[in-house]
Nucleic acid binder design. Structure first.
Lengths: 334, 334
DNA sequence: TTGTATGCGTTATCAG
DNA sequence: CTGATAACGCATACAA
């Protein structure tokens, strides 16, 4: 069996509590005994037992990341994992470990309830995909340290962090405007998609501010596939005035548009500029590479981790929300 | 404060140890007292404290997944996370939690040493990217329950799990053979890439068994980019006899080949069949969709989790290695 | 500055 | 089948 704090104490000729203080830098220990303790620690290769420690300190040093990781999630939605990477990084620096936990809306509630009651973890990071009204009230009632990634689509007092999609739209539009594009078109995703909708709003806003109204006919509504993008090109070219730039709501649409334009001999960006949102999965592979307004998911994860830890230290402060900034990544289509 | 096992005992009129036995189904408890205990548990909403529990049982119920998750890992190498999903799923079913931990070769050793000594986790899953000779001997010396994902590129007694790349090559070749392709070409990745090399070996082997030698001139060596693939097409078309099918070592190469073939008006699969390995990132998006020999990373993760758990229960059995099966996914290029 | 005493909440041993 | 008792290993309030 491995050495305990008592063994160290005995070897150093002091009491266990003194050893504890010395190792945790709590309380004061004379330089002399400190040295003796350190020697004893080294001699015995003492390592404090984490299980006993967490029992005594009432802290697991674990934070759980709860999300619905569906089939093929890593390929379909890698963003989730980029967030996790960020979370892990931030937590690690503070000595915390990250637990990955799959859940759906229902099981997320059940898990949280027992995990909190049984003190399995010190804090929770929920992906918006698993939060519910019930979860929100549980978290409020039990005062559970948490952060939601993505804005919960229910009203609640939960603490959340999200990206500003409207701002993304504004940045995309502003970029095109800066390049002199006054006649533009927007190939939009599904109509009920809040993200697409907010981005659209932002883009319209910028143009309006510059005295240009983006009217209904300039917005093509699709269902967000590559072929949808390709199909949209026809409408695009029939617009009057014919647009010199197009904003595509997501990568598949953008790729479809891009390829169809090229098939028709229309050069990008010379004849038609193109900008999209996110860089996955095509923007970094397409020919030419696509300019995109991107969100740094890794940063977002880091920030989320910092938020839970802060919530844990200061339960009183009600940090309600935090918004991350999008970045324009200019590549070759503008 | 929440109720403890003593509160339950008091309320049920029994001793704490009896309650423990009842709840853990260890030892025997009369139906009568069991009922009383259950009622008390319900009345007090008793939940056992996980920290105290792990202290007493000497088990954290945590397994750590250690890998080098580099910059943009989620986009560049989603496979890693698909493995993690599988691991999580298997562990969860057995009541274990998965900890995600970033490390490089150096820090993996350091972390493992202290995590094991401090009893932070019950088992380790290492990605091959972080194992070293030092780690291997540490693990052997301290008898640390573990599994390596991917074959370690050092000699050791570590327990590992991997996919059979040679078999993948055989499957790809066999598929083409079944379709009647006797003249084929292979566009290979980097020469020093063991994976490409093993697949190549497998493909050659199948053809040889069928009396067809794949000679040097039929194998095009590249450095695995899309443009490399496109460039390879020229050589491909100059081969004598001209191949009717091509095996591409990976997705970028395959996409390059596919697009260049189409640019030259060569129809796929009618004029030239194409098969590749893995489905990421292009096989499921390209036009036409690419036939591929694939590895189910999720399954591999599940198996890895089962292996560590088994190692923990039976430290004596020396499970040395485990190999997962590749699957042919026939899409539209063959 | 150091040591003593006690608590953290559960499980396991063993006697009844 | 049940209960008293002793760990499990560390942290901390308080006394010295």
């Amino acid at each position: 069996m491995s050495a305990t704090i008592r063994d160290v104490a005995k070897k150093a000729g002091v009491s266990p509590s003194t050893v504890s203080k010395a190792l945790n830098e709590s309380g004061a220990v004379s330089a002399d005994t400190l040295k003796k303790i350190q020697q004893a620690v080294k001699a015995l290769n003492y390592q404090p037992n984490a299980r006993a420690r967490s029992f005594a300190t009432r802290a697991t040093m674990h934070i759980v990341f709860l999300a619905d990781f569906p089939y093929d999630a890593a390929f379909v939605n890698p963003h989730l994992f980029e967030i996790m990477r960020g979370v892990q990084h931030s937590l690690d620096k503070k000595g915390y470990a990250l637990i990955m936990k799959q859940a759906d809306v229902k099981s997320a509630y059940a898990y949280t309830e027992t995990a909190a009651a049984q003190h399995q973890v010190d804090g929770f990071i929920f992906h918006a995909s698993v939060v519910s009204k019930k979860l929100a009230s549980l978290v409020a009632r039990e005062n559970i340290p948490h952060v939601v990634i993505g804005r919960p689509n229910i009203e609640s007092r939960m603490c959340w962090i999200d990206t500003d999609n409207q701002l993304s739209g504004e940045q995309a539009a502003q970029h095109l405007l800066d390049l002199g594009h006054t006649a533009i078109a927007i190939v939009n995703g599904k109509a009920d998609d809040m993200i697409s909708w907010r981005r659209l709003l932002g883009a319209k806003r910028v143009y309006k501010e510059n005295g240009i109204d983006i009217v209904q006919t300039q917005v093509i509504q699709t269902t967000s596939s590559i072929t949808d993008g390709a199909r949209a090109v026809k409408k695009l070219l029939h617009m009057n005035p014919r647009p010199t730039a197009v904003i595509c709501a997501n990568n598949p649409l953008a790729l479809g548009v891009l390829q169809e334009l090229q098939n028709r001999g229309i050069r990008v960006p010379q004849d038609m500029a193109l900008i999209t949102y996110d860089s996955y999965p095509f923007a970094m592979f397409s020919e030419p590479l696509m300019t995109a307004v991107d969100i740094n998911m890794y940063d977002m994860g880091q920030e989320a981790a910092r938020l839970v830890l802060r919530k844990m230290r200061h339960p009183e402060v009600q940090i309600q929300s935090y918004t991350t900034m999008p970045t324009l990544i200019r590549r070759e289509t503008t």
